[in-house]
């Protein structure tokens, strides 16, 4: 990758309709048109952008399959604009996953199945969904990428694992409901996500794209605040409001190299030591018979 390699990214901070896949597909077409008009090469949609979030028993009704016509139709929308789309994915064994798919040039290139399904407080994902079992990076035309969905990033190991695979870019589609009002100007959740995303970008020296949805479902508000962050942790672009918006920026992909030269954290990371220590912790935690 040359130093002047540039990527025009766009985040579709949208409000999907709950349980209406057809309407959302039409909305996706609209956002794709808008993104193309800005010259975007990569467009990220939020978590479950095709279905809405608090689906409950609607999960099987709105699911699509990897080889089904809906996936082909989505892939066909990608053309020369790479897409990250959120959907409920039904596997042949009839497990349902909260997934984000990477589509490029008419083809499905990668699937991330959400691993950490929040099931506490206002969340109930494990009641309806199966948990993914891997964090894999994948090549794109714009460097190595990895996808983490919303709650995934609340577990520090997820971005660490992607980082050690040498990703240039972490993409985080999200459906984060706002909560925690105080005297602050922003919601508690918004502060936490900003802290997390910027920390990952800076300490794993990668670009970080956070695309959160907006709108309301059953009284819960989604706070938007989508962010594009550089590998030094600086905010390149942020949508402050909770309105629908296309958030765009042009990334200099060479900044990953620049940052890792001045701040060689990845070079100095001790993978084997980490594995050995984790294995030791695992043995200590499991050696008791009960």
């Amino acid at each position: 990758m040359s130093d002047d390699h540039r990527l025009r990214v766009a985040l579709a901070q949208m409000a999907p309709a709950l349980g209406d896949r057809q309407r959302n597909l039409e909305a996706h077409r609209g956002w794709i048109g808008k993104a193309k008009a800005t010259g975007a090469q990569l467009l990220v949609f939020p978590e479950l952008s095709l279905t809405g979030y608090f689906l409950k028993d609607l999960v099987p009704e709105v699911a699509i399959t990897r080889d089904g016509p809906e996936m082909q139709e989505l892939a066909s929308l990608s053309g020369d604009l790479d897409l990250v789309v959120g959907a409920v994915l039904e596997e042949p064994d009839h497990r349902y996953f909260n997934a984000s798919v990477y589509l490029s040039r008419g083809e499905l290139r990668h699937i991330h199945r959400k691993v950490y399904l929040p099931t506490y407080g206002m969340f109930d994902e494990q009641r309806y969904l199966a948990s993914g079992d891997r964090f894999r990076s994948f090549p794109t035309g714009y460097g190595r990428a990895g996808i983490l969905i919303c709650e995934d990033i609340w577990h520090l190991s997820t971005a660490y694992i992607l980082s050690l695979q040498g990703v240039d870019l972490i993409i985080c589609p999200s459906a984060s409901p706002g909560r925690g009002v105080s005297t602050d100007e922003r919601l508690g959740t918004a502060e936490s996500y900003a802290l997390l995303c910027r920390t990952y970008a800076q300490f794993f020296t990668t670009f970080f794209l956070y695309c959160n949805r907006v709108g309301y479902e059953d009284g819960a508000n989604f706070w938007g605040g989508s962010m594009i962050i550089g590998p030094n942790g600086d905010l390149i672009q942020q949508e402050e409001d909770a309105d629908e918006a296309l958030v765009t920026a042009t990334l200099n992909l060479g900044d990953v190299r620049h940052e890792r030269l001045s701040n060689p954290l990845l070079r100095d990371e001790k993978l084997e030591l980490t594995i050995n220590e984790l294995r030791r912790v695992w043995h200590e935690r499991t050696r008791e018979p009960y």
């Binding site: 709950l18 209406d20 409950k56």
Partner: peptide, 10 residues
């Protein structure tokens, strides 16, 4: 165990 969101389809 019949659980749908209030905003079903909206």
């Amino acid at each position: 165990d019949f659980r749908y969101p209030r905003d079903w389809g909206h």
